[in-house]
Design a protein around this nucleic acid. Structure first.
Lengths: 249, 249
DNA sequence: ACAGTTCTTATCAAGTTGATAATAACCAAT
DNA sequence: ATTGGTTATTATCAACTTGATAAGAACTGT
């Protein structure tokens, strides 16, 4: 009997695993990107029961030799067809959902992750449905009837949105949703998309500049040329204040 | 064949659970309380292998009919002997730890929780070791050699401390560590204990008052009588600024 | 009555915010 | 080349917040 076997025997003896039926461990992904001043989330259409045909967050099982973060990266590629080596991507753990009946088939505990994709503010990365899903597509978050999502994914999406909106007050996390080098307007568009509120350009520049590093380069569109920046500090101190949400319309 | 069985069959067919060996789901608890202007954490001494005799965070398995939050409450009572009906207690999810080798026996995924116990700032609730643990005791957090903790519990403790310290900047979470009705000094002692920094009493009063509701009552100790408050708003806006940590002395 | 302690309020310079506007740089069309 | 439209950046200023410091008030113990 190996040392490992005896350890396990002691373990099984003291904890009686029969009392603790196995749980399946999954990850669910709240994948955000910004285009056209709107925040979009990546959704897949379920190809099986339950919730057949409904939209759901991408996700999948955590493999035996990976942790949840690694599974999040793998499933992101598998379920959405994204090539992570070709996109700026930031992943962070959001929260774990463990209600016993959240999946009607069996006990499934899901570690939700927030995924932010950088982009030019115009084009969204193209999605390619994986094997489990009928299709994968971007949806504007603020126009979404999130009650139609499968499982408890409406809760998870709401948590992801609130995490992002909240962290944008006191960190430079919004820089994850633009390109590495970006203008203050591009960054401001991210704030507009997530917070659903217009921020005065002058004050935004004054405040955000302290957390950014200028590259010296400029970019020319319509109007005056805009300076390019990269992320400087991780923190915004004191924080930006999130305005009250503007009335829809 | 019931509908449920066919669902499960479909599920098993499409996901092949053999690829995904069962994981054990546990909770680990970072339990904080303040006494004598020091932040304390509840630790148990392990009564079995691995890490026999080492100190560890209290915790245990999530039962089949409870979610992680319910398990956290139950294990808090079982492992520390605390009567939750006799203490002010706040529990919130911290993060999930899922490294494949974090427990040498088998795959154990743990949902860590932050637990805050209210108190008078002098006495710590008495701990009573549960069945799994040799003993349970309070340890001053900032004097602790956390590297000696079992498993990855040093990481979890650090995450719990940082979550608490961070949220104390922009929420009134510190009120969870005092009694329901408290003086500004008592609350300031919590900040001192967690942040390891003295905050000027006058400015602390000015700032914190806006988030508290006065009860009208006063309490008398040495010096001038202090007004009693209860928590008002959940938020501190703009946030308190956490001073740079004072050099250890 | 006095010293010691603590709570609360006051003061003020320095810094930050929100609102608003002025200035500057560029394009496109006349 | 000039004009008008558009956008970026800087400036201004009153209102507010902060950090430092101290004054005033209330009570205890001797």
């Amino acid at each position: 009997m190996s040392s490992n076997e005896s350890q396990e025997a002691e373990f099984l003896a003291s904890y009686d695993p029969a009392e603790f039926p196995p749980v399946a461990l999954t990850v669910d992904l709240v994948v955000f990107a910004v285009a056209n001043r709107e925040l979009h989330v990546a959704l897949v259409e379920r190809g099986g029961q339950p919730f057949l045909g409904r939209m759901a967050l991408p996700g999948g099982f955590v493999g035996p030799d990976e942790d949840a973060l690694a599974a999040a990266h793998r499933e992101l590629e598998e379920e959405t067809g994204l090539d992570l080596s070709r996109h700026r991507v930031v992943v962070e753990q959001l929260a774990t959902y463990s209600a016993p009946d959240r999946d009607p088939r069996m006990r499934v505990v899901s570690v939700a992750h927030l995924v932010l994709l950088g982009g030019d503010g115009v084009n969204l990365p193209e999605l390619q449905a994986g094997s489990d899903a009928a299709k994968a597509q971007w949806q504007p978050v603020h126009e979404l009837e999130s009650r139609q999502l499968a499982f408890d994914h409406a809760d998870i999406l709401a948590a992801g949105l609130e995490r992002l909106a909240g962290k944008m007050e006191y960190t430079t996390i919004a820089t994850a949703l633009v390109q590495e080098e970006f203008t203050l307007s591009a960054l401001r568009d991210v704030y507009t998309a997530v917070w659903q509120a217009e921020l005065p350009a002058g004050n935004f520049t004054r405040k955000m500049r302290a957390s950014l590093t200028p590259t010296g380069r400029k970019v020319q569109a319509v109007g005056a040329p805009a300076s390019l920046f990269i992320k400087g500090s991780e923190w915004i101190t004191p924080p930006m204040v999130r305005p009250v949400v503007t009335a829809a319309g």
